[in-house]
Computed example of a mutant assay.
Amino acid sequence: MRRLPIIPTILVLAAVAVMIGLGVWQLQRASWKHELLTRYADAAQDDTAVAWPGASDQYDDLYYRRSSFTCAEVLGRDAIAGRNSDGEAGWVQIARCRTARGDPAAVQLGWTQDPQPISWNGGEVTGRITRYGEGIRLVADPPVEGLAANAAPDPRALPDNHIAYAFQWFFFAITALVIYFLALRRMQAKSAD
């Protein structure tokens, strides 16, 4: 019987170890994600209002919580694809504001079928905090006058696919071992001829 090639065997075993490590890491991330989603689901059920955050290090603890702020100055308006409280597709109107204390803030004013941004000059808005790119926005509840109710931010809409990623990494590790084993058998069969 021929000896195993040392360098290829070490490389394959190292790659398999890395893939298994990544699978284990994804399982740990799945546990963390389930805890996070449970915390977000609890926050979405809680109607206790929190202060609008002034710094990004406060965001994670406030997602899906009720809050409010005064839009002292409207800096810009956008319309992005979104859904209303009945699940219909259309446009949600977003206003970028400066709060009364001078911080930038975004508010999802409400839903409409028309992508043209509405005229809104600011004021007090109340709703729930959710993600918005790298920042946050307040999803107004109730919506501002002239717009329909937004779909409520739902933590169940966040992706939770770490278990699938873990199994994918474990599958890759097994596949690498099988391919290497078949390659070794083929090399041994050729050397026996």
Rank of each mutant, 00 (worst) to 15 (best):
L138C: 04
V18Y: 07
N84I: 05
L109F: 00
A100V: 07
A79E: 00
A49K: 12
Q45F: 08
E134C: 06
V18N: 02
R66Q: 15
R131D: 11
L27E: 00
P143M: 14
Q168D: 03
G133V: 04
I20K: 05
I10F: 12
G133W: 10
A164I: 13
E145F: 08
L13C: 12
V12Q: 01
E88Q: 05
I163E: 13
D47Q: 10
W120L: 12
A89K: 10
P117Q: 04
V12L: 06
P117I: 10
I20S: 03
G127Q: 00
Q45L: 15
Q58L: 04
R156H: 08
A183I: 15
A164E: 15
T126Y: 12
I10S: 10
E73Q: 14
G90A: 11
G122H: 05
V107L: 00
P143Q: 15
D86S: 05
I94A: 07
N150K: 02
Q45G: 12
R83Q: 11
Q28T: 12
W91N: 04
K190A: 14
I80S: 07
L109T: 06
A30M: 06
V18K: 06
D193I: 10
A95S: 06
L184I: 09
G82Q: 08
I80M: 05
V107A: 08
V74D: 07
